[in-house]
Nucleic acid binder design. Structure first.
Lengths: 205, 205, 205, 205
DNA sequence: GATGAATGAGCCTTCATTCAT
DNA sequence: TATGAATGAAGGCTCATTCAT
């Protein structure tokens, strides 16, 4: 298993990226990618079984990487003792977000593809999968700390889903709008403050 | 073989709705719609100029209706005296949201199409157009009340855009997830509380 | 059988003319004609069995009129005694051409249709049918005067066909180019002189 | 199932020719051509960009070849000294016509397409383009020799256009009527004599 | 006399993909 | 490893025409 995928492969990747970025997955054309890479459409099938496989190759690592990062951060936090968790939730999430943004900006192209061009692929619901994780761990947190938000009915899993969706949409807007990392961080800090106020309100009104 | 315009038209509409809902505008097939309606693709063109015209017929009225409703509500509020505005912003928005949701649930199918299946049509950016209105009037409100959020830099138009996008995404999630009107109202009330807390935080921290 | 075809019929005719003139028979659209006449395509079929029948109605009378005129002129000449014929051929053809042009300019639209827009109809070979007549009578003339053009092989029926085709093409160019009648007459006089020289050359070299 | 480019291409060409010849460019069907060639319509697009490109491939070389031949012949003659030109015009045109006919019969199919089936393509006015060349050089000739045909008004550019059109129509009749080369040459020689008489008449009456 | 509905055939073209070479 | 050939499905749309009303 050669560590360095063949030269051709490396040539194809950026061409595919360009095409997907420009047209979106569904309207992207294998022929166009091939032409851009100086080869025939048929040739692409030596390197990717599918149009979709190609897309996966482009965004998969970053997608999984972020998901993993996210999962680990949540898991770590979840393992902390109850009291510590209660004290540090919001600080912790500052830290989590920071890493999150760093990761995204380290793989900016991939996330732009993921967020803007994935309709028609298995990644169409990428953001939803992050939301699901977020919701799952938020539920664990609430349960483990004995907060009465859920039992009182002030909060429900569906509500959490919706709020988290809103939050992630907002975060990924920075990618859609090609913000610089600096600008993005500043916005997202504002966003965090905004959402923290909301969470505080519904958790301990 | 019915030769009654109204009747056939009425037969086509739900078939079109189904197809668009299932495949999205771009992948929807005129032939499939026609087949579902028990007729030839060519026959559709007696009732609709275009594939897009068909979609517009389905969602146009609801889309424009909601936009109008929204605009009027904002405009009315905007005309109030400064003091009243400051006192009632958040109450007013309760009322506005209420009407908003009512309207959506009165035209649920249309909004599902609008929110989920409009890519490739003139309505692709429907939600954005609502956001733009929201931002515009929020700016007016901030300016007219002399709030220092903008001048201090705590808020920017872009931030407002992002937060509003997040909010509307969240609201339309109820449509995507086929919630009942009751459930939706309850969620959206929570959402409003949540976002209100955020706005209060950034407006007068 | 009402002498004055119904009013609607009269309304359709110029619309059909316009459409055929603009797009040619094959690309002309029944719908467009109907729309122009303020009615439905189906309605046209009350007045014309066919798209082609419509075209025939427009150009038929003029086409047959000219052919008849042409035939009669030839027939009359043909009945003259041999000596007279020999003496007056060329003068006679001046006269014939004059009437020919007059007739065309009395039905200019029809001939424009006939010459420019008839592809795909039974009139596609209208000009050829004139040529055939011309050739037939020219042969009779040559035979009856005992000219040796044919027997010597200087002339053949096919050659006559070709030359006549050339002549009629030239004549109908005046229609294609929208010349005024005055201009046309002048050109055609030149043309006649030109062709007369040719005929003289091959008939009695 | 042959995978040989050249072979398939060679198989398509005569099928395309047949279809265009039978129906004309506009009514020719890609599907029919493909079926005739034993393949799918889509397959044709590996060999030709377009329906029109296909037609061009069929007739382009011959069309341009003839035009070039014609242009060169005229240009060569045009470079001769005035006296020589005056002396040899008519002889020269014998030679020119000879080559012209040879070329046509060397590419008979192409010219039949060009003359009969090109409506709707860039070659629709092929004959006119030849006429334009002919007229241009005839004008040069008349001017350079000081002939008074133009200044006296006996001839005009429009008249020349019409006569030349007539001549070329006549020439291409041999193609339309599938004459053998021998027959054609004989007719065209007659035609030349015929037209020469005409030109002499109008140039020096 | 005219309509509106509907048909069925047809159009060219594009696409991802397969397969022998 | 890459190619060129070829496929089959699908795409939206237009047209002349028919027919019941």
């Amino acid at each position: 298993m050669p560590k360095d995928k063949a030269e051709t492969y490396q040539r194809i990747i950026p061409c595919a990226k360009r095409e997907f970025l420009e047209k979106g997955f569904e309207k992207a054309s294998m022929r166009a990618i091939a032409a851009d890479a100086g080869m025939t459409a048929a040739g692409l099938y030596r390197h990717f079984v599918d149009k979709e496989a190609m897309f996966v190759e482009l965004v998969g690592p970053a997608a999984n990487g972020l998901k993993e990062l996210f999962l680990v951060a949540h898991e770590e936090f979840n393992k902390l003792p109850k009291e510590i968790k209660e004290e540090t939730v919001f600080d912790y999430s500052i830290d989590k977000l920071e890493k999150f943004i760093d990761y995204i900006y380290d793989h900016l192209d991939q996330f732009k593809l993921l967020v803007t061009c994935a309709e028609g692929t298995a990644f169409a619901d990428f953001m939803d999968s992050l939301v699901a994780i977020e919701v799952k761990y938020t539920l664990k947190f609430i349960e483990s700390t004995g907060n009465d938000g859920l039992t009182s009915g002030r909060i429900t899993p569906e509500f959490m889903h919706i709020v988290s969706s809103a939050f992630f949409s907002a975060v990924f807007e920075v990618v859609k709008h090609d913000m610089t990392k600096e600008t993005a961080k500043s916005y997202i800090e504002s966003l965090r403050i905004f959402f923290t106020a909301g969470w505080k309100k519904v958790l301990s009104p």
